[in-house]
Simulated assay, not measured.
Amino acid sequence: MTSQTVDAFHRGRFHLVQPKGRGHRAGMDAMLLASLVADDSRCRVADLGAGAGAAGFAVAARVEKAEVTLFEYVPEMVDFATRSIALPENAHLASRLTVRQADVTLRAKARAEAGLIDDHFDHVIMNPPYNDAGDRKTPDELKARAHAMTDDLFEHWIRTAGAIVVPGGQLSLIARPQSVADIIAACGRRFGGLEITLIHPRPGEDAVRMLVTAIKGSRARLTFRAPLIMHEQESHAFSPFVDELNNGRAAYRRNDKSLHSQA
């Protein structure tokens, strides 16, 4: 059996089984992605490329009426997510979490057969691979597969999101700022009302990530929101609001308050 750890998130509200010393280990990116789901109603959430399931688990832990399906292609990571659902520490969430092995780039009938059903989910979240193929290589195969992207990755992933989310449903993703043009192009006529937030490590430093939300079928214009600053000056501690997001005590709500029952 692969060496593993069991790690607590949201101050112990859920736990994850993760590979030890290899693969992509969940952290801040997954927690910020999960914070984008701000929905008080009963809702269905698809986590595309879920890995061990960190973002999907974080949604289920904070959004009490959310039913979350984790879609992951790599069998080993599917196994980690499955074992995480079975942990006694996650018994309070288990009935609202499902994991499916699926290639999120499938189309038509094959996509539906994999559980990626058209017009079914209220929210789709994704943390797509973000390194260009020519970027720094790693001997860790699991990590390489999690981090390597292709030129048309966003087109394929967002095409699937557009198919499986209900009209008026929300797409949420986290990515590198360098991908902004590809994301806007892939949203095309599928999603509108894009809200983009750049994430900066500290004041005066360049952005390292961005949060994006969009609404299926919306014709609203793109908005660049105020940036999120992770740390204050020389401190390594998270800023108060980022700490709230990281620990599942707050949602990062859209400025467009018309979606669902956001209060």
Score class of each variant (00 low, 15 high):
residue 149 M to V: 02
residue 134 G to C: 08
residue 114 A to F: 14
residue 141 E to L: 12
residue 145 R to M: 09
residue 120 H to W: 11
residue 130 Y to A: 06
residue 118 D to V: 05
residue 147 H to C: 11
residue 140 D to K: 03
residue 113 E to I: 07
residue 127 N to Y: 04
residue 114 A to T: 10
residue 139 P to V: 05
residue 125 I to F: 05
residue 119 D to E: 12
residue 151 D to K: 15
residue 147 H to G: 04
residue 116 L to H: 07
residue 124 V to I: 08
residue 130 Y to W: 15
residue 150 T to A: 15
residue 134 G to N: 14
residue 119 D to M: 04
residue 136 R to I: 09
residue 121 F to M: 05
residue 122 D to C: 06
residue 131 N to P: 01
residue 123 H to Y: 13
residue 116 L to E: 04
residue 118 D to Y: 07
residue 118 D to F: 06
residue 140 D to A: 06
residue 149 M to R: 13
residue 132 D to H: 13
residue 147 H to L: 14
residue 118 D to Q: 07
residue 122 D to L: 04
residue 132 D to C: 05
residue 123 H to D: 00
residue 144 A to K: 14
residue 114 A to C: 13
residue 120 H to K: 02
residue 138 T to M: 05
residue 149 M to I: 02
residue 150 T to K: 15
residue 113 E to L: 14
residue 128 P to A: 10
residue 141 E to C: 02
residue 144 A to P: 03
residue 148 A to R: 15
residue 120 H to Y: 12
residue 115 G to C: 10
residue 144 A to W: 13
residue 142 L to N: 06
residue 120 H to F: 12
residue 124 V to S: 00
residue 120 H to I: 00
residue 150 T to N: 09
residue 117 I to V: 14
residue 148 A to P: 00
residue 146 A to E: 03
residue 118 D to K: 10
residue 130 Y to H: 12
residue 130 Y to V: 05
residue 113 E to Y: 12
residue 117 I to Q: 08
residue 136 R to C: 07
residue 126 M to C: 12
residue 123 H to R: 02
residue 134 G to T: 08
residue 143 K to I: 01
residue 149 M to A: 15
residue 134 G to E: 13
residue 135 D to T: 04
residue 122 D to Q: 06
residue 148 A to C: 12
residue 129 P to G: 08
residue 118 D to S: 13
residue 143 K to H: 12
residue 146 A to C: 11
residue 114 A to D: 10
residue 133 A to W: 07
residue 137 K to G: 08
residue 146 A to T: 05
residue 124 V to Y: 00
residue 138 T to K: 02
residue 145 R to P: 00
residue 134 G to P: 02
residue 150 T to G: 15
residue 138 T to E: 03
residue 133 A to Q: 09
residue 143 K to W: 07
residue 130 Y to L: 08
residue 114 A to P: 04
residue 138 T to V: 12
residue 113 E to D: 14
residue 142 L to H: 10
residue 115 G to S: 11
residue 139 P to C: 06
residue 132 D to P: 06
